[in-house]
Design a protein around this nucleic acid. Sequence first.
DNA 1: TTCATTTTTTAACAAATGTAAAACGTGAGC
DNA 2: GCTCACGTTTTACATTTGTTAAAAAATGAA
Lengths: 187, 187
Amino acid sequence: MHQQLKHIAIFKTLSDNALLAISKYIQAVSYHKGTILIQADKVETYFYVLQSGIARAYSDGESQQITFWFGESGSVLFSFNSYINNKPGYENIELLEDCVLIRIKLADLFNLYQGNIEIANWGRKMAEQELIATERRLIDRSFKGAAERYQEFADHSPSLLKRVALKHIASYLGVTQVTLSRIRAGK
Amino acid sequence: MHQQLKHIAIFKTLSDNALLAISKYIQAVSYHKGTILIQADKVETYFYVLQSGIARAYSDGESQQITFWFGESGSVLFSFNSYINNKPGYENIELLEDCVLIRIKLADLFNLYQGNIEIANWGRKMAEQELIATERRLIDRSFKGAAERYQEFADHSPSLLKRVALKHIASYLGVTQVTLSRIRAGK
DNA sequence: TTCATTTTTTAACAAATGTAAAACGTGAGC
DNA sequence: GCTCACGTTTTACATTTGTTAAAAAATGAA
């Protein structure tokens, strides 16, 4: 398992020593398309890294579902509120294709954070990267029109555009499916 | 300085030992209202904690400024992209009142992260808290209408509502000042 | 105070987006 | 093939929000 981890992008910056420490707690798992891997309102006890397949995170509203995140191979995948506050989350994570993942128990990961400074800083940088990406999306919602956001999504994530239902992409971009259709038709 | 840090909310979880390590690198500074503390397109070398006063972070667009963050007493204040990627940022931070702050050089903070596991985990949690707050705002933009976002802002941050110009609050909420006026008039 | 500047509100109109319903396309299973 | 279920597009209309300009109100300095 140690050798496998070396080839996963998110672990590339870690030393052999840190990888060895992590690898003791890692499991590989696979699930079918349609699986709800993480359920809102439950405390999720695992932290996942997606190896193959794609996934989405969404929240349920009164009349709609809002997709606010997509994961591809290499993405980390966890319940924010379980991970950060040890409380039930607000997001569901659904696998949009058959997926292979590796996982680690949150309790084990937290122990590693407390005992290994290299892993603690790795976890810090991971949160920081997610933070800067999320803030950029928030700012883009104000600066850019829906058509521009769609174009950038298409340019930046052509693979997701092909594999994900447009209704999910519409809510990810913050518009209705009708508006997305209009944008795509060029009107 | 060590005794002072114990009374700052963000440092409350740290041990005496960690506070002592940090306090060696801390300076107190104060600036007048209107100061642009952090400028976009420059690599910022300090990390700040706001002690009194308020501040806003904004990005410049072609025709508008977008305010995407407010800081009050106790908030941490830094250039995301300088802090995370050591590159020039996309945000300016303006002090909206006379402010007292403490600051630490990023280089010193990073050294503390590498040498003290308690501080490394403190930095991790800080990034995680900012992340979850930012993601919530992003999701709220899809779920909630502008009127509801305004009401929640007013309920949650009555102090900011009184002290900050409405034009800044409008862009923080993702609407124009005209729309915010309409919301406030109840139309 | 008074004057000048800035902020906020209001108005009229234009543009973008939402809602609801129907039409169309596609793929799975019978 | 046919039918059903689902996703996507289109249409017509309603609603929200933006734009521009101007007026009103608030603020701050002399």
